[in-house]
Design a protein around this nucleic acid. Structure first.
Lengths: 218, 218
DNA sequence: CAAGCTATCAAGCGTTCTATTGAATAGCAA
DNA sequence: TTGCTATTCAATAGAACGCTTGATAGCTTG
């Protein structure tokens, strides 16, 4: 029957998008792109895979319409295709956390002991009052591509060296890529070791941006 | 490095959920479950695949936490796991429509000429005013499992035979499983052939329910 | 236009996924 | 118990996928 063929085609087309989310390596690339656009080589290096392999995965993501590609001189820069794509990735991630115990177990193994958090609304309120210091502990390029308004950039590896920049008597809030990024956890632990009051934002930059909170772009 | 192993595990766990959405056959089952819970055999028949095959796919969906299973005597009834799962499925479907031209092409082939639509808000308003007749053209079991408040059930194959039930001078709105379900399109075309004023709801039952509009459940 | 990067292509190989088949199991009814 | 039905399990063959390797194409710079 012709109509059933057409219906099949419809589901096949939708499955193309599902397949895009079906490989861990691809998801890792996507997670990086949720922070900032990057070239193939940067992505390959950051995710520890070969350039050719990363290129293949990126093409798969591109074919599914999840990422865009732009030639910039000799490099090709990939980026999230838009808010829809970002929203979908976060929804998938959150759903898998909610439904699959393994995700939480893997996360706990990875993140270590949990640290105190602060929600988006609370943080925003305290930022406007000015009684909290907000630190972006992601790599500098990601900060440069966009960050929470009022944050200062101190990549995690530089934290100890630049402790003097942080007022010792004010509370510090650290944030990074998202709830499963270890940077903020680690930053808070180290800050507490120096006797400061510190918490981490409960999620990260992409969630903040999607929530429509004040940002500093580009 | 241990931390990178743990991070891999995290992405692998999330990819489990992605894989669940990576097969057309599975998506077809999911689409049916978005309307109403069903037994393995019913699902297999409705989607035109063997029972064993459907069972395998349903187990995969269950392992990903997208559907629930309940034993009912000799049968096993599967159902959507919750609003989260439904929301994720609809989000994936809509994203693939937005990003992949093929989906739209496949849809057009399947649905035929487009017919006039009415939005959720408009329909609700006119329903309360009482100047429109709402018809659910899905199979009867799906209507029985839940439907829009105030709708009457006339499955598409019975439409001609039961035309007398519909007032000839009032506008008729037909709805079915969703924007890619052909029933409502076809119903509107047939109603117009009889000289009536008819439109279709722009999407379907699951979208209505998720939007929190008035429903009649079970 | 040649050299040097970056990214993609093409082929190959091992692994995983899918659908089919036939056998096994669980609940129900006589 | 013995059938009967609905579902799952197990084994298998074929297709699709994922990663690697080496070659190719595009762009920039000297």
């Amino acid at each position: 029957m012709a109509s059933s063929d057409a219906k099949q085609a419809l589901f096949e087309a939708i499955a193309l998008m599902g397949k895009a989310f079906a490989s861990p390596r691809r998801l890792e690339l996507l997670d990086l792109l949720a922070q900032a656009p990057r070239s193939v080589e940067e992505l390959a290096r950051a995710s520890g895979q070969s350039t050719a392999n990363a290129s293949q995965h990126l093409q798969a993501l591109h074919a599914a319409g999840i990422v865009t590609r732009t030639r910039e001189g000799t490099r090709v820069v990939y980026a999230m295709a838009g808010e829809d794509a970002l929203r979908l990735w976060l929804a998938l991630r959150d759903a898998s956390v909610a439904h699959l115990g393994e995700v939480e177990r893997a996360a706990r193994d990875y993140l270590g002991d949990d640290v105190e958090t602060i929600g988006r609304e609370d943080l925003l309120e305290r930022l406007t009052k000015g009684d909290v210091v907000l630190v972006d502990v992601r790599p500098e390029e990601e900060f440069a591509a966009g960050h929470i308004e009022g944050a200062r950039s101190i990549p995690l590896p530089e934290l100890e060296r630049r402790l003097a920049e942080l007022p010792p008597d004010q509370e510090i809030v650290a944030y990074c890529r998202g709830p499963f990024c270890a940077y903020a956890h680690e930053a808070v632990r180290r800050l507490k070791d120096t006797g400061r009051k510190a918490r981490r934002l409960e999620d990260g930059w992409p969630e903040w941006r999607l929530a429509g909170k004040p940002i500093q772009a580009h």
